[in-house]
Design a protein around this nucleic acid. Sequence first.
RNA 1: GGACAGGUGGGUGAGUGGUUAAAGCCAACAGACUGUAAAUCUGUCCCUCCUUGCGAGGUACGAAGGUUCGAAUCCUUCCCUGUCCA
Length: 338
Amino acid sequence: MPVGTQGTVKGLTPRDLVDGLDAKIILANTYHLFLRPGHERIRHAGGLHRFMAWPRAILTDSGGFQVFSLETLRKVTDEGVLFHSHLDGDSHFFSPESTVDVQLAFGSDICMMLDECLAYPATRDQTLAAMRRTLRWAGAGYRHYLRREAGLDCALFPIVQGGMFADLRTACAEELLGLGAPGYAIGGLSVGEPRELSLEMASVSAALLPEDRPRYVMGVGMPEELPQYVACGVDMMDCVLPTRNARNGYLFTSQGRVVIKQNRYKEDDSPLDAACTCYTCRTFTRSYLRHLFQAGEILFSMLATLHNIHYFLDIMRRMREAILLGNFPEFLKAESGR
RNA sequence: GGACAGGUGGGUGAGUGGUUAAAGCCAACAGACUGUAAAUCUGUCCCUCCUUGCGAGGUACGAAGGUUCGAAUCCUUCCCUGUCCA
């Protein structure tokens, strides 16, 4: 899922995402859209889909990640999270119930439960406390959601926490199963821990979640990691890497990374990735892309993002194809040998 | 011809006697980025050497002299640039 935090996948139009890239679903963010332009504004505009002219599915994160990323601007209590807006310092209290309400106002297809995302490393006690809070919020939020959701056709995913402790992950997942949710997320990863640990924790968590419902690992990963997550039973991922790195000149290709600003691309008139079929690779040279980057041109961000998203979505498309054809194990083997 | 103003590292531009190999910004070069406070952030950025260190030499603030223990900073002459006046 491409990430479109503020109601836009930076650098791309919805038309790019649908026609060129065939993205099925994108992410948006409760905290950011609540602060600006506000969920009531979005509701009055006809919901987030209409507001941002996005015809396909939207998953909204709850603000749980901002508990981690805006650590210095918030205070967590058993009742919820008090944020001090990074825009103007105003206080806003996010509860399990209010974050459901805000996401319903957006008209999200998939809402996320408010959770407490801890930084790495965290002690077992800290992790246990955060996990218990996340569970409590999940219960409260889910009850609220069941009362409110009728007829809205919106799913709510609870989030497995438990940090880097396998037994806490297990306990959290088992507890959440009682909610009978339409899908489950695995959160609290990509917060500074080694990559192998992320995969291990995702694997432990995913193994306990229902096979017949989407299992979503939040905030991963590098291209080579995606098949590994899928091999653990993961169905959905999101990550800012393709979009953010694109804007920073880091391009993912079938031959490895291309840091386009490097001098070696100055006179490279070959395509970015000869094996890629995206508009950027079909049309422009590395030399030109480097020029655009060095010149600080907006077009660079657009073309780079288009390519990186294409690259990530193409990996996912090939995996779906392999699964349907029954040869995912071969796919995995081939990918890990690269 | 005259009167002012000014010449600093790739660029711009601080610095008016010692803590200045010389701020900041830009450029250049390299690195980071994982449910986005990110079109962001970090590092390097005169040369040589080694025991790679808040290390040792060398060269450097238009040029040449001078004053001083010490000069990008003060003095003299010259060169150059800009603006204005004839």
